[in-house]
Design a protein around this nucleic acid. Structure first.
Length: 471
RNA sequence: GGCGGGGUAGCCAAGUGGUAAGGCAGAGGUCUGCAAAACCUCUAUUCGUCGGUUCGAAUCCGAUCCCCGCCUCCA
């Protein structure tokens, strides 16, 4: 089966057929850098990482662009409050964002354009819309997109303008618009913006939010590209408006496949800054959970399924990962050359597991199916090890298969050196092994207690004692 | 009100017509000096509820209850 995705535009799963065979162009809506991102935000970036890695797994050359929104109401407001220039203020959170991505083992995109570096491109795009008569200058000197002059508006969100709830919210600036649903392309400067402003044909001001993604996506990926993603909350109005701006300007199809991930929930409610029910990655780490554990939690539920976050799920991730770690350690430590190894049989089993793994991912990133393939393989390889049916070279093939899976999962640590065992711990383990051989089990148990007190445990394996740090 | 997503074991979660994957937790067993790990067995006659279609439905149709999201900045 070919790679296929659920397209928000068609509400159907469709085969992925990129505009250029073998290449995938991907625009992923990035963070607004006014604060630390919370793990709900990272769920989206995690989904995008899974998408990116799956595309690569399936053989595509991926070009991914992720924007950094470094000018908007919140960045301006917070930087003024902090008494810092906008650029310095946002740099802080840009840096934090990249640190967090790295902690979650999220692969870097090819381009991370910042909005403030692309104002000329945005002005040019707005000018095109003005020339086409689709944009207009409002009474407040801001520039607005006229939805009435773009009949295709609403194609993504399936929103019928006539049925939009109206009259409920009339903000001040809406008196400046022809229609309440029109959205700002360019926001005229006012005192609240401090010294944050750019010159434009319509006077000083700053770009609207939606225009940034259109301008930067088209700059780096062209007027028409393959995939555009984000959280489901961006579907409307953000993505709808992006389509409107871009397609009105170019007359071309903007994006072929729109993918949206569901929300991360906390106790049944969406995690969000405004509800105050969020955790930053840093907070989760402070509670003792690792990046790979959080990565696992965020990744292990299908992206279109809302995911209720809990620390219990982090603990579950820990034990699930320990299961895989255990197998890798067995292969590395216990493998002995045995004559009964069935090389061909192992190869067949591995090919089957990889095929199931790939089939899951190809089916709209069905991670549950992919992980089931992984765990079924783990069980079978453990079984082979127990039966003495796995020897050196086929064991290397197992590691190769796990490595291949990990090119997508990014969390298995196949080749990460095990935690170094401190000399004193190692010495105790060896002493214990010696007294066990002498059948001095009282002393052996004493040593086990000493090790526990030092935060270590020891497992007796056919290849000798193995020290493990207690979680 | 409009649009969209979801209700599957103690928990998480696949499965869109053919008789319920996988993970966590739990029980018993094998192995072990003890343990851990690993393996084996068991743990939903049942998929929110009620009807209908069908030889057959968690899967299709109708009705109904509940939860969540978007429609306002939001991943």
């Amino acid at each position: 089966m070919p790679l296929r995705f659920y397209n928000s535009l068609s509400h159907q799963v469709e085969p992925f057929e990129p505009l250029t065979p073998g290449r995938a162009s991907l625009y992923t809506c990035g963070p607004t850098v006014y604060n630390y991102a919370h793990i709900g935000n990272f769920r989206a970036y995690m989904f995008e990482d899974l998408l990116r890695r799956t595309l690569k797994f399936c053989g595509y050359d991926v070009k991914q662009v992720m924007n950094l929104t470094d000018v908007d109401d919140k960045t301006i407001r917070n930087s003024i409050q902090a008494g810092k220039p906008l650029r310095d203020y946002t740099q802080l959170y840009k840096d934090a964002f990249f640190e967090d991505l790295q902690a979650l083992r999220i692969e870097k995109a090819e381009v991370y354009p910042a909005a403030t570096d692309h104002v000329p491109e945005m002005i040019a795009l707005i000018q095109t819309l003005m020339e086409k008569g689709i944009a207009y200058v409002g009474d407040d000197n801001s520039v607005y997109f006229s939805i009435a002059r773009f009949p295709a508006y609403g194609q993504l969100a399936r929103i019928n303008r006539d049925e939009m709830r109206s009259g409920v919210r009339i903000k001040n600036d809406e008196y400046a618009k022809e229609s309440a649903a029109d959205f700002a392309l360019w926001k005229a400067w006012d005192e609240g913006d401090g010294d944050v402003k750019w010159d434009s044909p319509w006077g000083p001001g700053r770009p609207g939010w939606h225009i940034e993604c259109s301008a930067m996506a088209m700059k780096y990926l062209g007027p028409s590209f393959d995939l555009h993603t984000g959280g489901i909350d961006n579907l409307f109005p953000h993505h709808e408006d992006e389509i409107a701006q871009s397609e009105a300007a170019t007359g071309q199809k903007f994006v072929k496949y729109w993918l949206h991930c569901a929300h991360l929930m906390v106790e049944g409610q969406k995690m969000s800054k405004s509800l105050g029910n969020f955790h930053t990655l840093r907070e989760v780490f402070a509670k003792g959970y690792s990046g790979r554990e959080v990565r696992w939690v965020l990744m292990a539920t299908h992206y279109r399924q809302s995911l209720d976050f809990s620390f219990q799920s982090c603990l579950n991730a820990r034990t699930a990962l320990q299961r895989v770690d255990g197998l890798v350690a067995r292969i590395r430590n216990e493998i002995l050359p045995l004559s009964s190894a069935d090389k061909a049989g192992v190869k067949i089993r591995l090919d089957e597991a990889l095929a199931e793994f790939a089939a899951g991912l190809e089916d709209d990133l069905n991670i549950s199916a992919a992980l089931a393939a992984l765990f079924n393989l783990v069980r079978d390889v453990n079984r082979m090890l127990d039966a003495g049916e796995l020897a050196g070279p086929p064991a290397d093939q197992v590691l190769a298969a796990l490595r291949r899976m990990d090119s997508v999962l990014g969390t298995l640590d196949i080749d990460k050196a095990a935690d170094g065992v401190p000399a004193d711990i190692q010495a105790l383990a060896e002493e214990r092994q010696a007294v066990r051989k002498a059948k001095n089990f009282a002393r052996a148990d004493e040593i086990r207690k000493e090790l526990t007190a030092k935060g270590w445990t020891v497992e007796d394996t056919p290849a000798g004692p193995r020290c493990k740090r207690l979680a």
